[in-house]
């Protein structure tokens, strides 16, 4: 098993955190993982993306040329990755700020108004975790339990209060994924 995902958006949307969390989960589950970030010199704004690979075997290139899955958080990211997607790949889109429709007909598309959903949960910033959890539930590179466990190692000290809302976000992501997959 080798699964790769590209997570891409603006700086500040939680792109790197989502990717790191996924990589940490994979590591904890005894998998080979690589996390490759790419971003401009800016601290906020600008474009940011990361490539995460989780595998049972040693990983050669950490770069994903043609994603089998992508979590797209803004419009420039859709423009960049739509043409690169593997046939039958999965694009998960933050519909809140990506109003554009996907032109490719040979890919699976899950559109989520992630920011609105996150706001309803009580914290708009958890948008990244809703989409990450949806990805994990559909593609299963790691377990959801593992993801929740890793989350707790990320949110320590002052951030401990954020565990609850982020777990809610993960559960919401699972729900959205199950609906998408047509399972109850």
């Amino acid at each position: 098993m080798e699964k790769g995902v590209v997570i891409s958006g603006f700086g500040g949307q939680g792109v790197m955190l989502a990717g790191e969390l996924l990589a940490e989960t994979g590591k904890e589950e005894g998998k080979f993982v690589t996390f490759l970030p790419s971003y401009g010199p800016e601290m906020r704004g600008g474009t940011a993306n990361c490539h995460v690979i989780i595998s049972d075997e040693e990983i050669a290139s950490p770069i994903i040329d043609h994603p089998e899955a992508a979590i797209i958080l803004n419009l420039p990211s859709l423009d960049k990755y739509e043409p690169l997607m593997k046939e039958d790949g999965l694009i998960i889109i933050n519909k809140s700020i990506v109003p554009k429709e996907v032109k490719r007909t040979d890919v699976k598309i899950l559109q989520v108004k992630a920011q609105e959903v996150a706001r309803d949960l009580g914290n708009e910033k958890t948008m990244n975790l809703i989409l990450l959890a949806a990805y994990v539930e559909i593609e299963k590179p790691v377990s959801i339990e593992g993801l929740k466990k890793a989350l707790r190692t990320f949110l320590t000290g002052r951030k401990e209060t954020l565990i609850e809302v982020n777990e809610k976000a993960i559960n919401k992501g699972i729900e959205i994924a199950r609906e998408f997959l047509g399972v109850k």
Partner: peptide, 9 residues
């Protein structure tokens, strides 16, 4: 820089 920026266990 690629080896420097990437994370691995």
């Amino acid at each position: 820089g690629l080896l420097g920026q990437m994370m691995e266990p």
